[in-house]
């Protein structure tokens, strides 16, 4: 269970508070107007953002841990791949940050690439991959890292609708396989409906406790109605 305990973030006058838990294995969409602090919330969980209060995984306090030691893997909006490394090397970083990969490690990298549908493309560099393929490489690495919490910060924002649905389906399958707890920032309500059990609404300086997806769209609170506009 991921717990945010009286979490408070202060960024030069911009503040964000959160105080809730997410059950293990749940897929959660983080929705809200732009600039409300969705990405900041994920950064705090991942360890990139100094906070007061605590971030807990089960009984363990993550707050003092640097990002790499948290049971968390994150996929960013962009710059998920190092352009000077091949797809396989980019995935391999998930096993060993110094890239001293054993034969066994390399086999696991190939397997992960095949798993996301990129078998045989390991030697390509990111410049030779399409946007969707690059997103798959990032997913392969996340799977290989095998961390119980997966954070996705609008990772498919630059993809077209069809490709986006395809990637969401893949995320859903992979997260289920690993049994990961997933938090995904999006500004597309459709994304939430597609894969999320629950929705965390970030608005007015507060990340609200998760509400079941069907429920929140059936009866949207004021902040969500404003955000959804006509659609609400």
């Amino acid at each position: 269970m991921l717990t945010l305990e009286t979490l408070h973030i202060d960024l030069d006058g911009f503040t964000l508070d959160a105080d809730f838990s997410v059950e293990t294995g749940r897929r959660v969409a983080v929705l809200g107007p732009s600039g409300a602090g969705k990405s900041t919330l994920l950064a705090a969980i991942a360890g990139f953002q100094p906070v007061s209060g605590r971030v807990l995984w089960d009984e363990t306090d993550l707050t003092p841990l640097p990002p790499a030691q948290r049971p968390v893997t994150m996929i960013f909006q962009d710059n998920n791949l190092f352009p000077h490394l091949t797809a396989a090397q980019n995935v391999g970083l998930g096993l060993r940050p110094d890239l001293r990969l054993s034969r066994d490690d390399k086999a696991r990298v190939d397997e992960a690439l095949t798993r996301v549908g990129l078998g045989g493309l390991g030697t390509r560099k990111p410049a030779a991959l399409s946007g969707g393929q690059a997103a798959r490489v990032a997913l392969a690495r996340a799977v290989l890292r095998h961390k119980p919490v997966m954070l996705l910060d609008e990772p498919f924002g630059a993809l077209g609708p069809a490709l986006r649905d395809e990637m969401l389906g893949l995320v859903r399958t992979l997260a289920d396989e690993v049994g990961a707890t997933l938090l995904m920032v999006s500004h597309e309500p459709e994304d939430a409906k597609a894969i999320a059990h629950e929705v965390v609404l970030v608005a007015d300086g507060r990340a609200h406790a998760p509400v079941p997806t069907a429920e929140i769209f059936a009866n949207p609170p004021a902040a969500l109605r404003d955000y959804l506009g006509r659609e609400g």
């Binding site: 991942a46 640097p66 990002p67 790499a68 994150m74 960013f76 970083l93």
Partner: peptide, 10 residues
């Protein structure tokens, strides 16, 4: 790439 590298423990 700083955050990505931090996250991966590089």
């Amino acid at each position: 790439f700083g955050r990505l590298a931090d996250g991966l423990g590089m």
